[in-house]
Amino acid sequence: MNIAIASGKGGTGKTTLSATLAFYASQFQTTALLDCDVEEPDANLLLKINVENRYPVNVLIPQVDMDACTGCGKCQKVCQYNAIVLIKARPLVLPELCHSCGGCYLACPEHAIKEIPRPIGTIETGNSNNLFYAAGVLNIGEHITTPLIDEVKKEHRHATLRIIDAPPGSSCPVIHAMEHSDFVILVAEPTPFGFHDVVLAYQVAKSLSIPCGIVINNMVEEYEPLRNFIHNENIPLLATIPHDINIARSTTQDNLIDYMISNYGQHIQNIYEYCTNRVIL
């Protein structure tokens, strides 16, 4: 079973919940935590699992054999991303703009283009007992994150439960993170920003026809529009976790997951049981 955790807004507690839930679940079944927030992967700051493997993720970019190139410009014409431009009848490749579609390679009448790998990030994996971990780490200055997200999701397929920590936002990286999940846990803050953005995340899940449950996090006081939304859309409310400044206060020396389990163990158990029971039913 794949469960994605998303929120639209950043900083609502997605990663803390993902890591805690993964740790909790690993007591009962082989669990994987897949950190798909490849721009800022933070899950292992909490889990502290030893990274045993690192490997680069490459995308394909064109390389032009200048001896074979006649300067016809077909490659530039087919490229929808302006990633290949002709300067004085010689093609110049702009790697960061390339989407690796292979169009130029297919279009070149002289077969002067071959595709070569270019690294955009790294996958890190490791495990501790029954808990498996994988994260994508985007290289600094890279634009495109989706190939890295897709790669993270290929990890730890043997795990019976895979928890996907999605990036913030509502655009294509979130789609790639959520896609093929069986269930989405939305993490909402009861504030105008938190509400506005969780609705977007909910719409992404809906567009992929994935059922959702919701966790209200950092609860200080009720936010009426959020309550109404949950009620009107009939989204199961899995837990309400109060605002707790100690979570933010924790340092790298502290064990935040232990703290979460001892203070909010019941909430985590409820979320876990809801998700697992859903599948049995």
Partner: peptide, 23 residues
């Protein structure tokens, strides 16, 4: 936006100054 990818790069290139808000 949050992050360091495409929309962030598009938001900061060519700016005079970047103020980073951290916690």
């Amino acid at each position: 936006p949050p992050g360091i990818g495409c929309p962030v790069i598009a938001s900061i290139t060519g700016t005079t100054h970047v103020l980073i808000v951290t916690e």
